[in-house]
């Protein structure tokens, strides 16, 4: 899973550093992207391209790992053996996605060790939605369906991006996501078409998750600083608002057909086919992403405990002759 953890974008004030790049190499690089060819790790690339891609792929990887935690806690309590097995398979997929993505980011020159350290130290971000709790089994179902649906919108767009290793990883990831989406939808439909108690349960979970879901794709384009160069380099493939509109268009009707309501009185599709909604509380989003959410501390603590508890195994296995080489592709 994946969403815009924060703004992917270059702060308007920050220098792009492009004036320091070799103009001939830069022109060749841009021409390659313009004719639809992918960039591979050994190609020349502008420092800004490398930096933005590392940040984006690394955040995506962290989101997969941290994102597996809220659903992971429900494996043992999932109703019935079959659901436990399916929930476990999904969580295992998500952790596998993180592995693929860390490797893709690593080809750009940041080691996996450094990325994992930065996650635990709070230096790098992950999708902000995972700073909220999955209070009930129904919350877990809403995550499986709608957060994964959001992730798919993002991932399908990014799979058309310009960086080869990221595209290869996303191709595998997208193939697995189709199971997540169907699994999540099935679980939500089961509750929504069940007893009045089950219906209430899923409606309440949806009410809790709707505000975070609306922030999943990141701040509105109006507030975003310029992303033009990242679009041209095919790092960012679709604007935040574009992804949000696509998500609403695909999933609001599927929510409504179950007789569920969306907790936003303003939500509607206008005559121009554009979804209108209450602007999410971006100040609150900022507060939570900067550490003050209900689960931030817990998510990192779990990750850190896993890291520390496994350290002796890694130490015991490490060969003294081992030499670090970054992965090829």
């Amino acid at each position: 899973m994946y969403g815009s953890a924060s703004t992917h974008d270059i702060p308007a004030s920050a220098a792009t550093g492009l004036e320091n790049e070799d103009p001939i190499l830069l022109a060749e690089f841009e021409a390659r992207i313009a004719r639809g060819e992918k960039i591979e790790p050994r190609d020349w690339m502008p420092a800004l391209y490398r930096k933005q891609l590392i940040r984006m792929i690394e955040q995506h990887a962290h989101s997969e790992i941290i994102g597996s935690l809220p659903e992971g806690t429900w494996i043992t309590r999932a109703p019935g053996f079959r659901r436990k097995m399916a929930q476990m398979a999904k969580v295992q997929d998500e952790v596998g996605h993180a592995q693929l993505l860390y490797s893709a980011a690593e080809t750009l020159g940041k080691t996996r060790e450094q990325m994992l350290s930065d996650l635990i130290n709070g230096k790098s971000k992950y999708s902000n939605v995972f700073n909220y709790p999955a209070l009930t089994w129904a919350d877990s179902n809403v995550i499986s369906w709608l957060i994964d649906a959001g992730a798919i919108v993002n991932q399908m767009a990014n799979a058309k991006g310009s960086y080869g290793p990221y595209c290869r990883a996303l191709e595998r990831i997208c193939a697995e996501e189709s199971f997540h989406l169907k699994y999540g939808h099935d679980a939500v439909v089961h509750l929504a078409t069940g007893t009045p108690t089950q219906r209430r349960m899923i409606q309440e979970a949806l009410n809790r998750w709707w505000p975070p879901i609306m922030t999943f794709f990141g701040p509105s384009d109006k507030m975003s600083v310029h992303t033009e160069i990242l679009m041209r380099w095919k790092v960012k493939m679709a604007s935040n608002d574009h992804c949000r509109q696509q998500f609403l268009d695909m999933y609001v009707p599927k929510i409504w057909e179950l007789g569920l309501t969306v907790p936003d009185a303003k939500l509607r599709k206008n005559e121009d086919g554009v979804w209108e909604f209450t602007e999410p509380d971006w100040e609150d989003f900022k507060r939570v992403i900067n550490g003050d959410g209900p689960c931030n501390a817990e998510r990192l603590a779990v990750r850190r405990a896993a890291e520390e508890n496994g350290a002796w195994v890694r130490r015991a296995l490490l060969s003294p002759k081992a030499k670090y080489v970054k992965p090829l592709a």
Binding site: T111, E113, Q114, L318, A322, K326
Partner: peptide
């Protein structure tokens, strides 16, 4: 921070 080869070779 983790040592450089904490996650092994590739």
């Amino acid at each position: 921070d983790k040592p450089e080869l904490d996650q092994f070779e590739t």
